[in-house]
């Protein structure tokens, strides 16, 4: 915690969890998707659904998927701006999903030839956590540079990726691995101190066991 966590962040009101956090979730989803998209289905759950309109949660999350930061004064116009940029946005409200965190959103983005579902929650103070990508359970905050690897669940892939990063002098702050079932697809989240160069994606995707690399930088 530094002094600017106390006097800060600079943000668009009214709520750090329901507005600033929502914008961050939207922006993280956009970064994770990593390509153009023409449609977004956004489901707001629980408190996000109940008090979302008064807090501008809907506008904030749309602003995020359009690439705005939580302190962008255009945030309040995000819905209109999404129409202008030709992105179809569907908002769905689900008020009582008790198994989910009180401030949860699911964002499905539709691109030219891919679709991705990203679920995350807003933890308070503008901090967020991505919990699920396309059915893979995960936990990362977007506060670090993040490398997401969709890969085969088999021996050697984790070692391959980490030794590659070691060669590039990229330090791993945290990492987490999850899989659907033994030998099936797996998802690896690596948070790094250094900003991974774009070549990381190309280089790692050369491995036959790695299907896709997504890089989200801070």
């Amino acid at each position: 915690m530094n002094l600017f966590d106390i006097i800060g962040p600079v943000m668009i009101g009214p709520s750090s969890s329901h507005t600033a956090g929502a914008a961050r979730l939207g922006k993280l989803a956009r970064n994770i998707f990593g390509e153009d998209f023409n449609k977004a289905d956004i489901t707001l759950y629980n408190s996000f659904a109940k008090t979302g309109q008064g807090h501008g949660t809907d506008k904030a999350i749309v602003a995020g998927i359009l690439g705005m930061d939580p302190d962008d004064e255009d945030l309040r116009n995000a819905i209109d701006l999404s129409h202008e940029s030709g992105i179809e946005v569907n908002l769905i409200l689900e008020e009582s999903k008790r198994e989910l965190h009180p401030n949860t959103a699911k964002i499905i983005l539709y691109g030219k030839d891919k679709t991705m579902s990203i679920t995350g929650c807003s933890l308070g103070g503008g901090r967020v956590m991505i919990q699920d990508i396309d059915g893979f359970k995960t936990e990362f905050t977007g506060e670090f540079n993040t490398i997401i690897s969709v890969q085969r669940d088999k021996p050697g892939i984790v070692a391959y990726v980490t030794s590659y990063l070691a060669q590039k002098n990229i330090n791993i702050a945290q990492m987490k691995l999850s899989r659907r079932s033994k030998g099936d697809m797996a998802l690896m989240i690596i948070e790094t101190d250094e900003t991974p160069p774009k070549s990381v994606k190309e280089d790692l995707e050369k491995h036959e066991g790695i299907y896709k690399i997504v890089i989200s930088t801070i």
Binding site: I6, I7, V10, I12, P14
Partner: peptide, 18 residues
Amino acid sequence: NVNASMGRIVAAPTAGSC
């Protein structure tokens, strides 16, 4: 008031007490 109208503020320490 600015906070409640979706204007820009500094959380100090929170948006509610800005």
